[in-house]
Design a protein around this nucleic acid. Structure first.
Ligand code: FES
Ligand code: FES
Lengths: 137, 137
DNA sequence: CCTGAATGATACCACATTAGTATCATTTGT
DNA sequence: ACAAATGATACTAATGTGGTATCATTCAGG
């Protein structure tokens, strides 16, 4: 359900969010070591997050990545979408023919409803909310 | 969410259930042609269903497969389990370290709850219920 | 202005899972 | 005996995920 791409991204973002009082800029090398994620892999992930606007990057010596917006506004569901593609059950979950009519099929209706429920449940979770759990523990 | 294995199985079972008044026994060749599923592939799937008791097979000339129990008692969720393995989010969805404590983590709680909801929603769908939609349309 | 530390972009490799094929053995009706 | 069917199983192909490698670009600091 959640791949390593998403997993690592969440971890890196949490790490940055937690230390964001003291510093804003984090080079990949440092994060990779602290979180024990393969450096080139994490780098690719952060580059993607940069392209999506979740992070902002600074090149050159002393550069690195910083959060593109406050942790309260970074939603886990968006990270899932970025790394695992959009939730898509637009078209028939089964390949035609089984179903009487795409508009009336029971199975399809259920699946779509389940997906909506899933998304709405996940929607409230942000990097900030994950972090707050961590602090309390 | 639903693989072709499950998809094809559902389709074949629906086809058999729909015609079950007139005949009980269906050879793979016929189903494969009617549903446009590669014959050897469908054959493998039906063999699996036979081993799981969903179908009953008859060898030799004039043989084929028939439903192992009434369509009201063939649940889609069971087919998913047969072809896609058990739903398993037992262990942490993220790999350690992110989470404060496996018992308190918000994300994990949500994911587990979502999965439960999913299963309970799917539980009520049977081959018969899919078919009844089809007839009405 | 040169160098080194950092990201940007992209192509590539390794592995697992899913999808599908091929083959030979066994059963059974005619 | 023969042909039509499944049983079992090994194999191949396509896809997705996880990860590496490389070269180009930017930029701070001496
Ligand atoms: S599952 Fe697609 S129309 Fe029914
Ligand atoms: S997601 Fe596993 S403990 Fe939080």
């Amino acid at each position: 359900m959640i791949t390593k791409h998403t997993d690592y991204a969440i971890r890196a973002l949490c790490e940055m969010a937690r230390n964001k009082q003291s510093r804003e800029l984090f080079p990949v090398a440092e994060l990779a070591e602290k979180l024990k994620i393969p450096r080139p892999f994490l780098r690719k992930l952060l580059q993607i997050l940069n392209n999506k606007g979740v992070l902002k990057s600074y090149k050159g010596q002393g550069g690195g990545f910083k959060l593109g917006r406050p942790p309260q506004r970074i939603f886990v569901v968006d990270l899932i979408r970025i790394f695992q593609g959009p939730f898509k059950i637009d078209k028939c979950v089964l390949s035609k023919d089984v179903c009487p009519d795409v508009r009336t099929c029971l199975l399809r209706k259920k699946v779509v409803a389940i997906e909506k429920h899933m998304i709405s449940e996940l929607k409230s979770i942000t990097i900030a909310s994950l972090l707050s759990m961590k602090d309390k523990s």
